[in-house]
Amino acid sequence: MAEKTADSGNQGFLGSINWLGRRTLEIIGELGAVGIFFAWGFALIFSLPFQFRKIIQQVYFIGVKSFLIISLIGLFTGMVLGLQGYYTLVKFGSEGMLGAAVALSLIRELGPVLTALMVIGRAGSSIAAEIGIMRISEQIDALDTMDINPMRYLVSPRMAASVIVFPMLTALFDVIGIFGGFLTGVVLLGINSGIYFNRIYDSVVLKDVTGGFLKSLAFALIVSTICCYQGYFTHMRSEGFGARGVSLATTSAVVISCVLVLVVDYILTSFLL
C-alpha cells in the first residue's frame, strides 16, 4: 500500500510504466478468473445427478428461440452472397463457380461467426442480464445458503446447452444460406441449378465442414462463459451497482464476446488452413 502511493507519485515515464504493469497484472488476473470460472462450470456439467431438464430448458431458450432469426439471417446472407458473388464471378466468366463460392464462405466463415454474433445478441445478453439480476437481488446467495451450487445450477446448463445449440444453429445457417444463394443465383439470375449444386458438391470437403463445426464449438464455450461470468460477478464491478451494474455487465458481455469470437475465429482459421 505504501509502495503504491510512492510509485504513483512518480510522474511521466515511470508512471506510465507503472500503469502498464498494473493493467497487465489486472488483465492476467481477469483471464485467470475467467479460466477458472470456465473450468468449474464445464466440469460441473458432468456432475451427478445430470441436470437434463435444465439443459433442455436452456436449449429451448438459446436454440429454439433463435431458430427464426438464424433462419432469416442465413437466408439473407446466402442471398446477398449469391448476388455479390454472381456479379464478381461473371466478370471472369466463371459464374458457374457461384455455388462453391457461396457454400465455402458460408461453411468456413460466415456460418459459425454470424451465428455466434446473432446468438450473443439474442441469448448472450439476456443470460448476462438474468444472472446479473439474480446476483444483485441475492438470489445467488440464496442458492448458496440452500447448499445448491450456483455454478452448477446456473452456469453449467447454459454451457452444455450452448455446446449443443451452436453447431446446430450453424448447420441450419449454412443450409439455409446455401438455399438463399440458390434463390438469387438460380431462380433470379438464371444459373443452371445442376451446376450450382454440383459445384458445391465438388468443392466442399469434409475438412471445411468439420472446421466450421470446430469453430462453432469454440464460440459456444466462449460466449456462454463470458456471458455467465459477466452476470455472475456483476456485484464485483467497481463502476456501477444495482441496475446500472447489470446494464454494464450486459454491455461488456456482448462486447467482449463479440470481440473474442472474431479474434478466436482468426486464430482458428490460421490453424485450420
Partner: peptide, 18 residues
C-alpha cells in the same frame, strides 16, 4: 429443433462433406 439441427448437420457432413 434438435431434429432439424441434426438433419442440417447430416446434410453438410454426409452430402457436402462426403
Amino acid at each position: 429443433f434438435v431434429l432439424i439441427g441434426i438433419l442440417c448437420v447430416g446434410y453438410l457432413t454426409v452430402k457436402l462433406g462426403k
